[in-house]
Structures are given as structure tokens and as C-alpha cells.
Design a protein around this nucleic acid. Structure first.
Length: 640
RNA sequence: GCCGAAGUAGCUCAGCUGGUCAGAGCACCUGUCUUGUAAACAGGGGGUCAGGGGUUCGAAUCCCCUCUUCGGCUCCA
């Protein structure tokens, strides 16, 4: 007899050797049909697997969270099945389920290249295999047998995977899964058969290094997605369309914010409206920084290479810097502000009473990013961080870190963004001894714990000079972005020999905290545009109010209204073109202008304006004076 | 940097296998209309078909190189 426990705590008696399918059938015929797999003691198993006696089980159906991953992994196998039959001689490697879909990496035979145009045929073949309801059949064999099998097939990647399983995990057996003609080395689990994949679509072809190593062979990756119903797939495709419509590169062009040009790859040209937006964000940093004790500085763009040697960037990151030479001196354009700030701090004497010193600088940075990595505003060569460096004593670290986090949360709140925190600890390659790292990581943990902030830990992902806290936000399309970072640095003060005089009249080494909250203004604008679909909040909109005279004879009055609102500090334009009022309203709406004012004979008579709100419509009349006061208040309240 | 794809007017795109293939819509300019809450009407100007080289009687179209962009991979101090 096998006894298992159901989620409701009831026990179920089964014949010994009973499988997941047996358990599902014992519960009910409906469930037996709906079952995709089974969890036993937290581990997901195929329905055909024998259940361990005494296990706590729960049946996975289409309603379960695990279901999507399961059938996407199934779909990856079906993709491989289709590819192998269409392109004989193709070597397979790995094909996992991922967020939103799955992929499989292949090495196609010499001379065969796959492009997007080949996907429909592959997809068609996949659907044939799905319709055929091929059973996923598991077999466990010895590693020797597996090695021989895959060697004889010339499946080099599988052989390497098995060898690694032996070396790293001491594996003596491995599992294989067969569906139709295709047998794959696979840990499982899988649904009972291929027809459980209700909707599948191939999406793109890409290159991907074998095992993510840029020194190894580049394989061909095919991305696809699968769902439990056609409707879910449709909805997903609609979401992708929506994301495409919100692409910040598209919005930047349509709203006249910025452009890119071949003459300076990876660098934005900011148009007047985009510059307004950009400058508003810089102002925000300044206004929020001032009461928090930040002082703004301006440091050079170009430095003697000696400075980069001192900072350590010369050895580690020279290939990503723009270098030049003048009068036989080697110079480098700054990829970050910290060495300049460290140098500046070191250029004068400091007392412990002066600390913390908080230097901020929206400095212009250049990084020579590899051409293939550039992406709109999100990955650029020329950008500006909302950067600051705090120089403080050891015992001020915790408080300063907490203050940085408070600053970050206050900033994000204005945009309706909520952040998740991630603590990254010491990496393999690092400077400084373990005691220092213990102290640094301890300070960050304490700051997080005492602030009552929830966080996850990312072991080994810290910077080489210190641990850090990264801040991630989730946007309106549920995509995650890293924005801010707060990093502790014990290394740079050492390299620049920074000191302050303590109460004991001895020299002490300050700690340096690097922090950027929005990240870079460029990247932040990109994320903000995609998050808001271009509907920027009133305080941030490049044009806040568009005045629209009904006919030419009202133009003068419209200009007068605009002038009155400008005097109240608002960004106002008057569209006095002889186009129809309908067209000008439409264009103002498309330009995402928050407020439109229509003025004609009636308004001249009464002195009122007719107010229209973006995306809402006509809101009736209001006197110019009352409107000016109302909108000025709205503009000054960034949280509104 | 690596793999794949693309680059035709300011924008979105048509132009199949080389021979009125340099086009359309929007935008722009000019004229008419003088407008009441999401697109008035008519006419007109505009492109070294990314750049360079080649094949051909003839190239936007075929081949090679370069640049840029897009989708990924690696990277992102």
C-alpha cells in the first residue's frame, strides 16, 4: 500500500507502486483528465512516476501556477522535435521555459542559417506534433549508457552536460524524455502528452553563446511562447503590441522629445521639449537633495590617465573609456564621477565635524559601450547620472545609507513607482580583506533591517570595491527595471589616500558611498515614457497648457491668456494656426498635452476659458485667474 | 564585440524574380475656408533608394565591404 496526503490533509490509500495518474484517478475522473503533473513533497513529478509512500501530494492542473512552465518546457521539446525533422544533422543543447515563454538553442549544420522567415514552417511542424498527442516517456539510464548514446549521435552538447552532471553532482543515472521521434536528456517533469499545449507561437531567432560564455560557440536560439488556451496567447500578443506602442524610442519621436543620429551612435539629441523634461528631472534632484544636505559640484570631463590609474579604472575598464592624447599626455573622458569627487575631497583638509560631505553632480559621462549593446535611451554611450558621493565616517555609514534609501523612495513615490530592494554581497574578485567586507555588509544589513525594509540578497553580485543595495521598480506593464543603487566603497578612499582629522587629532579614512537614484536621467526618461505611455504628470509635461483660439480673430486673446498663465509659471503654448479647432484639439491630445483651453467669442465676452483635460474632455468654463492659480498649485505639487 | 535581420521623402510604408520603379498616405509649403471640443478642401515642393566598390547594355532591386538601426547573446565598473 502507498499512503499519500492531499492538500486538505486527508489521506489517500493507493496500491503500492501507484503513480500520480493513479492518485488523480482515485480522487475523481474529472481530475484525472485535467491533471498535468503532480507535486510530491514539493517536487513536481510526471503523472507516470511512482509516488513515494507517505508523500504530501497535490495535483497540478491548468489552474496551477506551475502549469505554464510545464507546458512551455514541453513546447521546447516539441520545438526541438520539429527542428530535428526539418533540419537533419542539427545538434541540440538546452531548451528551458522562461518568463513569458521558452527557447531552445541549436547548432545547425554547416551552411544552414535560420531566420525569422523560417519560423512559420517550424511552427507548423510543431502543431502537427502537438495534434498527434505524442506521449512524453521517461526513462532512467546509467550515465555510461547515456554518454555512449549521445556520443554516437554526435550530440556534443549533451555529452558535455552529462559529463558535468557526473563531475559536479556525482550523477550515476540520468533521465531521458522521448516524445515522438525525439529523445532529450532532461530532468523533467513533463505533462503526459504534447496535446496539453493548447496554444503555441514562435517569436524570434537570436544568437546565444553556449553556456552563456562569449568565448564559446554561438548557437542559434529560437524563442517562442505557449499558453493553456488560445485566448491567453491572444492576450499575451496584445500585451506585446501595447509594449511596442509604448516603446520610448517611438514616443520620443512622436512627442518631439529626442532623436538619435548616425553621427553619434548611442547618444541622444534632446529637442526643446525633451530638454524641458530632462531639466525638470534635474531640478527635482536638486530640490530634493538640498534639504537632505547635498551640495552640488562641477568637475571636469577630461582627466590625465594618472587619475584613472589611481582610481583603478585604467586597469579594469580602459577598453570602455574614450581616450585621447594632447601634448604627449594621455587623457581619458570620465565614465563616472567618483574619481573626480574623490580627488576634490582629497584636495582640502577635513575635520570629523565636517562629515558627512555629500557631493552631487549631474555630470556628463561617456562610456564606450560595445555597439551591439546600445538600445535607445536605456543603454547609451553618453549620459548623465543623478549621481552623488557621500564621504562619511565609519559610524555614520548606517545612517547615511538609510538616508539614501529614504531619498530614493521619496523620489519614486512621485512617479507612482514602488521599489524592491536587493542587497548584493562580496564578489569573487574584490579588493579589501574579509573583515572590511563583514563590516560593510553588516552596515548595509543593519540599515535595511532597522529601516524595516524588505529585501532579497544577491550573493556575490557586489561591486569589486564594496557591497551595494540596488533598487528595482516594476512598471505598468509589469516589467522590472533597476533604477537606483547605493554602494559602499572602502577602496577608493584608500587609493586616493583620503583622510579627515578625528576628535583624537589623528588621521582617519572616510568611507565613500556612491549613490544614484534615478540611475541616469536618460534611462529614467525612457522607463518613465514606457511606464506612462507618454502621459506625463502635469508638473513634468514639456507643454502643460495649449491655448486654442476658435478662429483667427481670437488669436490675440489666446496669446493674452497664454501670457497670463506663463506669468503664473506655467509652460503654455498658443496654437494660432488657421486649422480647424477639431484638428488642433486632436493634435494637442496626440501630443499628450495635459490641459487644453478653447477661447472664442463667448470666452472673450465673459473673460473665462473653456477647459479641456487630456483624455477626459470638455470640463466647462473657468475664469483665467482661478485657472492660473489652480494650475500653478497643480504644477508645484509633484505628488499630484 | 558575437549571431540573425533591416536601412526607399520628416514619419509609416509600397516598389515580386534587374528594363517609365523613384511612388502612396500623413507631415511640410501655397491658396481658399474662419472654424466651438480628436482629422476642412484644392494645388505644390521634397529622395545620390544609408555610404563605398563591383557585376551588367541597364541596379533601389544581384554580389562584396563599411556604417547605423532592430531582435537576442556577452557585457553594463
Amino acid at each position: 500500500m502507498t499512503t499519500v496526503t492531499l492538500p486538505d490533509g486527508k489521506e489517500l490509500q493507493l496500491e503500492s507502486g501507484a503513480t500520480g495518474a493513479d492518485a488523480a484517478a482515485a480522487i475523481g475522473p474529472g481530475l484525472a483528465k485535467a491533471a498535468l503533473a503532480i507535486t510530491a513533497n514539493g517536487e513536481v513529478l510526471d503523472l507516470a512516476r511512482e509516488l513515494p509512500d507517505g508523500a504530501a501530494i497535490s495535483i497540478i492542473t491548468e489552474k496551477s501556477d506551475e502549469a505554464l512552465d510545464l507546458i512551455r518546457h514541453d513546447a521546447a521539446h516539441v520545438l526541438a522535435t520539429a527542428v530535428i525533422s526539418l533540419y537533419p544533422g542539427t545538434k541540440v543543447s538546452i531548451g528551458p521555459a522562461i518568463d513569458n515563454g521558452f527557447y531552445y538553442d541549436f547548432e545547425f549544420p554547416e551552411g544552414v542559417t535560420i531566420s525569422d522567415g523560417d519560423l512559420p514552417a517550424i511552427e507548423k511542424r510543431m502543431k502537427e506534433h502537438i495534434k498527434a498527442a505524442e506521449v512524453f516517456e521517461r526513462s532512467d539510464i546509467s550515465v555510461e549508457e547515456a554518454l555512449e548514446r549521445f556520443r554516437s549521435l554526435g550530440e556534443d552538447y549533451k555529452v558535455e552536460l552529462i559529463e558535468d552532471l557526473i563531475t559536479n553532482e556525482g550523477a550515476t543515472t540520468v533521465s531521458l524524455y522521448r516524445n515522438g521521434e525525439f529523445t532529450d536528456l532532461c530532468r523533467g517533469p513533463h505533462a503526459p502528452s504534447t496535446d496539453r499545449i493548447k496554444a503555441v507561437a514562435l517569436q524570434s531567432v537570436a544568437g546565444a553563446y553556449w553556456r552563456g560564455d562569449s568565448n564559446r560557440k554561438m548557437l542559434t536560439r529560437i524563442y517562442g511562447t505557449a499558453f493553456l488556451s488560445k485566448k491567453d496567447l491572444e492576450e499575451h500578443l496584445v500585451l506585446l503590441e501595447e509594449a511596442k506602442a509604448r516603446d520610448h524610442r517611438k514616443l520620443g519621436r512622436e512627442l518631439g522629445l529626442f532623436k538619435f543620429s548616425e553621427v553619434s551612435p548611442g547618444s541622444a539629441f534632446w529637442l526643446p521639449k525633451g530638454t524641458k523634461l530632462f531639466n525638470e528631472l534635474v531640478s527635482l534632484s536638486r530640490e530634493m537633495g538640498e534639504p537632505r544636505g547635498y551640495t552640488e559640484v562641477k568637475t571636469p570631463l577630461l582627466y590625465d590617465s594618472e587619475l584613472w590609474k589611481t582610481s583603478g579604472h585604467w586597469d579594469k575598464y580602459r577598453q570602455n573609456m574614450f581616450l585621447t592624447e594632447t601634448e604627449d599626455r594621455s587623457m581619458g573622458v570620465k565614465p563616472m564621477n567618483c574619481p573626480g569627487h574623490a580627488h576634490l575631497f582629497g584636495s582640502q583638509q577635513w575635520s570629523y565635524k565636517d562629515l558627512p560631505v555629500r557631493y552631487s553632480e549631474p555630470g556628463l559621462l561617456h562610456r564606450n559601450e560595445p555597439s551591439g549593446t546600445l538600445h535607445g535611451l536605456l543603454r547609451v554611450r553618453h549620459f548623465c547620472q543623478d549621481d552623488a558621493h557621500v564621504f562619511c565616517s565609519d559610524d555614520q555609514v548606517q545612517e547615511e545609507v538609510a538616508a539614501c534609501l529614504e531619498f530614493a523612495f521619496a523620489t519614486y513615490k512621485l512617479f507612482g513607482l514602488e521599489a524592491k530592494l536587493e542587497l548584493s554581497t562580496r564578489p569573487e574578485q574584490r579588493v579589501g580583506d574579509d573583515e572590511l567586507w563583514d563590516r560593510a555588509e553588516g552596515a548595509l544589513r543593519t540599515a535595511l533591517d532597522e529601516g524595516g525594509w524588505e529585501y532579497t540578497v544577491n550573493e556575490g553580485d557586489g561591486a569589486f570595491y564594496g557591497p551595494k543595495i540596488d533598487l528595482h521598480i516594476t512598471d505598468s506593464l509589469n516589467r522590472s527595471w533597476q533604477l537606483g543603487t547605493v554602494q559602499l566603497d572602502y577602496s577608493m578612499p584608500e587609493r586616493f589616500n583620503l583622510t579627515y582629522t578625528g576628535a583624537d587629532n589623528a588621521d582617519h579614512r572616510p568611507v565613500m558611498i556612491h549613490r544614484a537614484l534615478m540611475g541616469s536621467y536618460e534611462r529614467f526618461v525612457g522607463i518613465l515614457l514606457e511606464h506612462s505611455a507618454g502621459d506625463l504628470p502635469f508638473w513634468l509635461a514639456p507643454t502643460q497648457v495649449q491655448v486654442l483660439p476658435v478662429a483667427d480673430r481670437h488669436a490675440e486673446h489666446a496669446e493674452a491668456v497664454a501670457a497670463e498663465l506663463r506669468a503664473a509659471g506655467l509652460r503654455v503654448e498658443a496654437d494660432t494656426r488657421s486649422e480647424s479647432i477639431g484638428r488642433r484639439i486632436r493634435e494637442a491630445e496626440l501630443a499628450k498635452t495635459p490641459v487644453m483651453l478653447v477661447v472664442g467669442d463667448r470666452e472673450i465676452e465673459t473673460g473665462d476659458v473653456s477647459v479641456r483635460e487630456r483624455g477626459v474632455g470638455d470640463e466647462g468654463s473657468e475664469s483665467v485667474a482661478s485657472l492660473a492659480a489652480r494650475l500653478a498649485a497643480r504644477a508645484s505639487d509633484r505628488s499630484a
